[in-house]
Design a protein around this nucleic acid. Structure first.
Lengths: 112, 112
DNA sequence: TTAATTTTGTCAAATATTGACAAGTTTAAT
DNA sequence: ATTAAACTTGTCAATATTTGACAAAATTAA
């Protein structure tokens, strides 16, 4: 999907004939703030991804791909990161999985 | 590099025979907080990447790869994102580049 | 023009991050 | 075993950031 996450939501919403107010209600959001999200002036909170999935009967994993893909892309763009960054990211995910499955240590490193 | 960013710093520091206090001074940081960073209990602030590059005569791009790669990996791990997320991230970076080079609009979308 | 929709501006409240210091633990040397 | 340096952990106020909410302006569609 060649779009920011905001554009992605807006397309979902308009394709389904919803107003900002209608979707905002389902997401427990102010319509003004949803507008800002769609236009990239505010962040969408990841806690609402599941509500968004329900609103449009979407697979949560698909949404996560769009959402986090967007987040990472924005950082990459903002800080002008080499594209190799994403390759290293993949390696590091695997590394985290290995170190956190050893010896029953399953908790996320930064978790309380 | 198969390591978290904290582990990466720690290796740099010890390989170069520096104490926490010595490196922390160069980074304008409390040694206690540098210790937390190395052990993944605090975030390293991206504003200090350039100081880190100077401290160890490293290429800033190489550091960015490690730093942002680590950030993305932690999110991926924490939210259990499909690895496809990174592919989409790459697409979106390119998308951002195209939309933000059109018509002289070079500013980052969320910039003030 | 009017009514609905969308966008923008603002700000206080809620959250999160940071710097700083104290206190505790580990390590290494003698 | 004692000491000193190095490292780790806990805490908390200060700072910074994000969020929710509302008003008001702008756009869109009859």
């Amino acid at each position: 999907m060649k779009a920011t996450f905001g554009e992605y939501i807006k397309k979902l919403r308009t394709d389904n004939g919803l107003t900002l107010t209608q979707l905002a209600f389902q997401l427990d959001l102010d319509s003004a703030n949803l507008s800002k999200i769609e236009n990239g002036k505010r962040e969408f909170d990841e806690k609402r991804l599941s509500k968004l999935a329900v609103a449009f009967s979407l697979d949560l994993d698909k949404l996560k791909i769009e959402y986090f893909g967007d987040q990472f892309a924005k950082k990459m763009y903002e800080y002008n990161c080499p594209s190799e960054t994403l390759v290293v990211a993949e390696e590091k995910v695997n590394y985290l999985k290995t170190i956190n499955t050893k010896q029953g240590i399953i908790k996320f490193e930064n978790e309380k």
